[in-house]
Design a protein around this nucleic acid. Structure first.
Length: 257
DNA sequence: ATGGTCGGCCTCCGA
């Protein structure tokens, strides 16, 4: 069994202790990280190598940044999402490891809507769809994990009315997300848990964690060759309750080898 | 209950 996790850590420097603690207890074969919030050279690869992981990162100053850890060697395939040479935000890292093609994805938040930030989100989703179409045509086992900043359905948030016009939930966002899924991807958590309510993010503000006012925005999207091997997908709420927690918690899926 | 979210960073932006 191959265990793969995705976790928006909200700064790897602030979260190093919590992430290493979770790696030691959960022992995933692969961890996809988002929002490392450091430059590529500053990524603390040694701390993960000491735990038996290979590590690659694509970072930038202050914002965004994605990384991949694997207990097998990693070959980097892409350090940016194709389709816009002018886009300098570190939001996409595609690798080959464990006999799989994996990507760590940090899709733009897009708030506030009706601004250039939202336009950038929609354009990024369009580029992701174009790239995914090419990946699917290759008929490989592909695992695309990350913070998609998309609440797929009403069941994926505590109160849809609160999110109605938010960039994470508004109809245009969900339509674009479905368009990507409809290329032939399986959304792992929802495919295996058809009606369960589980969240992967709780805002730091307003006691959202204590009242369980969360949203599910961290997802695994799988090609058919990967989905055929999917055994489980679950959300590990525990790290969200720790001191100095990220506002996201890990999502984990298991695939037969 | 004299507080109220966090992280990075140059004092405000992004989430």
């Amino acid at each position: 069994m191959i265990k793969i996790a995705t976790w928006n850590v909200n700064s790897i420097k602030a979260r190093l202790e919590g992430v290493t603690r979770w790696l030691e207890q959960a022992r995933p074969n692969v961890l996809l990280m988002q929002e490392i919030k450091c430059q590529t050279e500053a990524f603390p690869a040694e701390a993960f190598e000491a735990l038996g992981y290979h590590a690659v990162a694509k970072g930038q100053k202050s914002y965004n940044g994605v990384a991949v850890l694997s207990d097998q060697p990693i070959e980097v395939a892409l350090e940016a999402l194709p389709g816009d040479e002018a886009d300098e935000q570190a939001r996409y890292l595609e690798v080959l490891t464990q006999g799989l093609r994996l990507a760590s994805i940090y899709l733009p938040n897009g708030n506030p809507p009706d601004t250039e930030k939202y336009d950038y989100k929609l354009a990024w989703m369009e580029r992701l769809g174009d790239h995914v179409a090419g990946l699917l045509a290759s008929e490989q086992a592909v695992v695309l994990g990350g913070d998609y900043n998309v609440i797929p359905d009403a069941v994926d948030c505590h109160d849809p009315s609160v999110w109605a016009n938010d960039a994470l939930y508004r109809l245009e966002t969900r339509k674009r997300f479905r368009r990507i899924l409809n290329l032939g991807l399986t959304e792992a958590y929802r495919a295996l848990n058809p009606r369960s309510r589980a969240y992967s993010f709780w805002d730091y503000q307003g006691g959202a964690w204590d009242s369980d006012h969360g949203i599910r925005i961290d997802h695994f999207l799988l090609s058919a060759q990967a989905a055929d091997r999917l055994a489980s997908c679950s959300i590990d709420r525990e790290p969200r309750g720790w001191k100095k927690a990220s506002d996201h918690t890990p999502v984990v899926c298991e695939m037969s080898a």
